[in-house]
Design a protein around this nucleic acid. Structure first.
Lengths: 232, 232
DNA sequence: GAGTGGTCTAGACCACCGG
DNA sequence: CGGTGGTCTAGACCACTCA
């Protein structure tokens, strides 16, 4: 046990009062100014504490309306989206990858649509198999817009660096979205990953953008046993 | 387009310099004091901007060592862990649930171990099926420690509120962990969800604690098609 | 030892928005 | 209108850690 100091102590005390139902869900808690006086600290310190609680979803804050205890404590979990190589090596396993395909082609309409590109636009299509200790670990299917790339082309097949690592080092993205789902393995995926068709795969789909320009859409299918973990 | 003011403008400018490779990955950027002078703002304003970038994983900060551009931009995604009822209703669907089982029993050793309880401890075991528009949506299998519960027992089977909602309103937890994976549906799950055994299920496992006291371990198996989505 | 980020203070002005 | 949170300032002290 260690007693927090400063704004963390304020946060802890406010949390404790919420937990004890001193301040019930939906209720308005005292204003920053009042709390600052009660705790004998500057308002900025209270503000920092309450801002953190708001970011965690414990309270909701609005000008004039004040700070309320969240009625439905939507807990927020922060996931680290790792670079595959570091994820594998972080478990003490040997990382390798093999580029299966690298072609310049027109994507299916659904892909073009997701990236907001005109039908008929041509993209790089890259398929990569990643290994952990020599065993298939992750099947990656990526569409890559040449426009924002230096040299307008991804690294050659012989490159020693994976597409993703090359991307994060060479093309800065400003935002994106990510989704997680479970899907049954298709024939091709199953063959690459060395599993039976229909097996349950953990799938991450991600799109990234640099301003208005789409960079990439990637589908990551993890071999059975993969688990994404984080603390609340 | 709108030009950000204040600390957001600082953050944007720093991000832009990183994107332009003015400041390369791994490089140390100027100190807060220097940036404050350059931008003509107080150091606290620069601090706020850099703190946000650090939270996003764009830069890494250490006392004395200064602020560095992250070499491996581990992007962090913030997931909202929703209450099932709100998640379903938020899509405009009708929510229902049915409590399948509510017994007081000794859990399997693996469950007791995960919760840090002695073998032989007895817990509530609750199995619930959740529906969206009348169709099976989520199969929930929960072990619940009676110790931290008001009345030492969960609500009766006839209750109109789901176990999870009752929990978040009546038992405050201080921390927990959560994991996401894909698993093949077992016989029982498949029957409840109305799908074929072996189908790919998205599974969330969560444990929560109130200080040193374990509260619950729950396994949520979502019907095929479920997708967790967030922005980066 | 010295430079960096981490935090706090006391005060101020502003944007928002409920009554 | 007036109260609330959002932010900024100028200054200060502290904690950490590198050289």
């Amino acid at each position: 046990m260690s007693a927090p100091k400063g704004w963390e102590a304020i946060r802890a005390e406010v949390l404790a009062r919420i937990d004890r139902r001193d301040w019930a869900p939906g209720a308005v808690i005292p204003s920053e100014a009042d709390l600052a006086e009660e705790f004998g600290v500057a308002r900025a310190t209270v503000n920092r504490a309450l801002r953190e609680l708001a970011r965690q979803g414990v309270v909701e804050r609005r000008r004039r309306a004040g700070t309320r205890v969240a009625t439905h404590p939507v807990r927020k979990a922060t996931l680290d989206i790792p670079v595959t190589r570091l994820e594998v090596e972080g478990r003490g396993q040997r990382y390798e990858f093999r580029l299966l395909e690298r072609v310049f082609a027109a994507p299916p309409p659904v892909v073009a649509g997701r990236l907001g590109l005109a039908p008929g636009a041509r993209l790089w299509h890259l398929r990569t198999l990643h290994f952990a200790d020599g065993r298939p670990y992750l099947y990656e299917d990526r569409w890559l817009n040449p426009a924002p790339l230096p040299g307008r082309a991804p690294p050659a097949e012989a490159a020693q660096i994976s597409i993703n690592e090359w991307l994060v080092r060479n093309v800065a993205y400003t935002f994106g979205d990510i989704s997680f789902s479970a899907e049954a393995a298709g024939e091709a995926e199953a063959a690459h990953l060395g599993i039976a068709p229909g097996a349950a795969l953990f799938v991450i789909e991600r799109t990234t953008w640099a301003g208005e320009v789409p960079i990439t859409l990637v589908r990551l299918a993890y071999a059975p046993g993969y688990r994404l973990h984080t603390l609340l």
